[in-house]
Structure formats: structure tokens, C-alpha cells
């Protein structure tokens, strides 16, 4: 029991490494802030292409893209983009490689969420909007898409939380986010406590968001 505390809940080591982990936390936060809007925008574009296009080949291509990146483990994708990129002549810096892999992976999940949202808006809404002379694009922008987002807001938030957790994978390619910082600290102090501290920091960041998400889902179920 005592060794457990020594090894995992070592307050001295916590104090020692906390500033270092804080830097890692910052990286986690800005990396998420970079990837979430990009993934959401790409996902919305894919979903719009999927639900609005009359072209069958385009729809098939979009579905293929979505299913491909849903089937592909993000860690493998990251490694391929990171290590394989230079072979293709793609000189990506670390952040760009990580961001590219994450956006490719996550846009497919966002596309599915937006697709469900768009298909859930009543057909009469588009008809009414068009009957007043709005073009398709205007009707989508002012009437359909806002309602689609409202309907699937909990899923959008849930996906955003997943992205924050996903950033921990970047530790494998030595991106200095929270988990990497903890692992580096661990090898410096020869003690796994930093990893435990990082776990607590993830909880502090994400638990409130998860609770908020639960409330959003509850509100939606009652509507």
C-alpha cells in the first residue's frame, strides 16, 4: 500500500513536475482548439455534399471516404502521415502532420453526426424557405443547417471531447502534449507518479465537460 502511494501519489513529485505538465496541458488545449473547428468544418462540408448532391458517384466517394477513415485506427494514421509523409515529398512539420491525421480521422465522425442532423430536419422547412424565393444555398444556410446543428449539438460536443482525448495519441510521435510531458517526467524522476498526475489533470479538464454533455443529452431527450 505504501509503495502504491510512493509510486503513484507521490505529492513531492507532483509538486515538482506540475509546472512541466501544465505546459503539456497547454499544448493539448491549443492542439484541440486547432483540430476541432477544422474537423467540424470538413465534416459539415462532407455531410452537405452527401445529403444535397444529386451526383451518385460523388455521394459514393464521400461515403467511401467516411467509412475509410472511420475504419482506420487514428494511431496508425498518425504514424503513416508522420513517418511516411516525407517519402511522398510532403515536408510537414510535427504540428501539421498531427493536425492532418486528426482532421482526416475526425472529419469522418463529424460528417456522420452532421448527416444525421441534416436528415432530421423536416422536409417542409426547405419547401417553405424555397417558396419565398430563397436559393438552395440560402435555405441551407439560414434555415436547414442551423436546425441541424441544434438537433445534434450533444453529439457535436461529444465528438469534440473525443478529440481532446485523441491528442494523447500524439505522445507517440513526441508531440509535447500532456501525456508526453508526463512520460518524459516519468523517465526523469524514475517514478510513475507524473502519469497519475496527468490522469488527474485530464479528469479535471474533461469530467465537467462530460457532465455538461450529459445535461445536453438529457435536454434533447425531453424535447
Amino acid at each position: 500500500m505504501d509503495s502504491l502511494i510512493q509510486n503513484f501519489f507521490n505529492l513531492e513529485i507532483y509538486a515538482q513536475v506540475f509546472p512541466y505538465l501544465l505546459g503539456g496541458l497547454w499544448t493539448t488545449v491549443w492542439l484541440s482548439a486547432l483540430v476541432i473547428p477544422l474537423g467540424a468544418a470538413a465534416g459539415l462540408a462532407l455531410a452537405l455534399g452527401l445529403t444535397q448532391s444529386g451526383s451518385r458517384p460523388l455521394r459514393w466517394a464521400i461515403v467511401a471516404f467516411i467509412d475509410f477513415f472511420r475504419a482506420f485506427p487514428p494511431l496508425v494514421l498518425l504514424i503513416l502521415v508522420y513517418f511516411g509523409g516525407p517519402f511522398l515529398g510532403l515536408e510537414l512539420n510535427k504540428v501539421a502532420a498531427v493536425a492532418l491525421a486528426f482532421v482526416l480521422n475526425n472529419s469522418s465522425y463529424y460528417a456522420e453526426v452532421f448527416r444525421a442532423g441534416l436528415q432530421g430536419v423536416a422536409k417542409g422547412q426547405m419547401e417553405a424557405a424555397r417558396s419565398t424565393g430563397l436559393t438552395r444555398a440560402q435555405a441551407l444556410r439560414h434555415v436547414v443547417v442551423p436546425q441541424a446543428i441544434r438537433n445534434v449539438l450533444p453529439d457535436l460536443v461529444g465528438n469534440a471531447i473525443e478529440i481532446v482525448k485523441l491528442t494523447s495519441i500524439a505522445s507517440v510521435v513526441a508531440m509535447p502534449e500532456l501525456l508526453r510531458a508526463a512520460r518524459d517526467a516519468q523517465s526523469l524522476v524514475f517514478n510513475p507518479s507524473p502519469v497519475m498526475l496527468a490522469a488527474f489533470m485530464y479528469l479535471a479538464l474533461l469530467w465537467p465537460l462530460t457532465r455538461w454533455l450529459g445535461r445536453l443529452e438529457h435536454r434533447r431527450a425531453r424535447r
Binding site: 417542409g124 419547401e127 417553405a128 417558396s131 419565398t132
Partner: peptide, 10 residues
């Protein structure tokens, strides 16, 4: 112009 049976308000 058109008015709908189900109103179709936004």
C-alpha cells in the same frame, strides 16, 4: 407566394 397546411415556420 404560398401558405402551407403544416405552417412550416422556422
Amino acid at each position: 407566394g404560398m401558405v402551407f397546411q403544416q405552417f412550416n415556420l422556422y
